[in-house]
Nucleic acid binder design. Structure first.
Lengths: 216, 216
DNA sequence: ATCAAGTCTGTAACTTGTTCTAGATTAGCG
DNA sequence: CGCTAATCTAGAACAAGTTACAGACTTGAT
């Protein structure tokens, strides 16, 4: 499945091309953000501290990322790219599409467990984001969709399959939140993921679907 | 299905019984909260304004609700009780359990559409809540579960059914967020709800499930 | 090399959630 | 009624996100 370059193109809004120093600043900021987040989660990412850690004035930080939520969502985009790359190297081994998706998400989940504070910061920012961050959040969503479709081994999904993927993403985000806020165990998240992934089986060609009103 | 009184018991932590004046204050605060939220959503619920609107000192507000998120989650509990009562009066008419659940959730969704700002405030608070609010958020979750099980017409759900309900709740919350932040249309939310509700069909006695690894 | 436009820095100010304090008020009790 | 503990009020104070601004530094074009 050859689809490497496409990601990088859509990743940046690419409005004005950044100079080298600017690219370096941006990278320092994202690094500081991830670092602080890894320590104490959402609350520990304080804009003044991010600015100081990344050797940038507060005003500059806000020029690069117009709010804390923007910053953390961008941090998530960054991490997601890593993740997608990593996952691509070792594709999931399951037989059915739903097994492979569940395996992929559980692998991502285990990665998040290694940095729970970072996960907290990123996921909280994602769900707290208001309309002003929609484009960036959408980008994260597209990236996530791409990862799931990859795991399914699809290049040209049907509408029903896209719906299933949407629901899987919903479940993934919400399950993460319940885990992060201590209301669900790791085992519980696993069950939820496995449960929702069975939706995929319903969309397979041979599956008998006794349904109506599944418009567009 | 006789299960009326139970809700009220678990609804309040019932630590110290409130005096009449205190109950009145609590009610004024919740009312002011809902009112402000209906105007401008999460951001419009400012603690100083809530205090003023409800004729209570700021310190008192914080004594009743230890944070803005606590306040909004309590507001949501309040609204949910209304909702559950309303829904109970006109049970959904669908033939299958999944149809009835989808109908119920869509009805709730339409109610939220009438007060989108209030919905914004409540849902944002719910997903932004950290561990310190877990008990309250859990209470909301239980109430939501009860509504869904009601719609299914179940009193004694199987583990598989509970899993399905959990996933439905995940989808419900997350779909609401995408709608509130303008990243999904009302139609899209409808599709997502209908899609996830088909999971219920998989848990019915006669359903053929070609699955493995569905532990406990 | 020089100039204009755009960036970056350092710092103060403003906003809103949260905490703290000192002095009234209220509730329960003898 | 009169006392004591708890509660409530008004207002200041603090914390962190965000904005504003004046002056220094870069950049790109000439």
């Amino acid at each position: 499945m050859p689809a490497e370059a496409k990601v990088d193109i859509s990743a940046r809004p690419a409005s004005p091309p950044l100079t080298e120093r600017q690219e370096a600043r941006r990278r320092r900021i994202l690094h500081a953000s991830a670092q602080l987040a890894s320590r104490g989660g959402f609350d520990a990412v304080q804009m003044r501290e991010v600015a100081e850690s990344s050797q940038v004035a507060l005003g500059t930080l806000y020029r690069y990322f117009p709010s804390k939520v923007h910053l953390l969502v961008a941090t998530m985009q960054d991490q997601l790219e890593h993740m997608h790359g990593t996952l691509r190297k070792k594709p999931p081994a399951g037989e059915t599409a739903s097994e492979r998706v569940a395996e992929t998400l559980m692998r991502a989940f285990r990665a998040l467990q290694r940095e729970p504070h970072l996960a907290d910061a990123m996921v909280r920012a994602l769900t707290f984001a208001d309309r002003s961050v929609s484009p960036e959040v959408d980008q994260v969503s597209r990236q996530t969709t791409a990862i799931i479709l990859d795991a399914m081994g699809l290049t040209d999904p049907s509408p029903a399959q896209l719906s299933a993927v949407r629901v899987i993403e919903h479940t993934w985000h919400s399950a993460l939140i319940t885990w992060l806020s201590g209301r669900a165990s790791i085992a519980q998240v696993k069950i939820d993921i496995e449960t929702v992934c069975r939706l995929i089986d319903l969309t397979e060609p041979g599956a008998a679907q006794g349904n109506k009103s599944q418009g567009r």
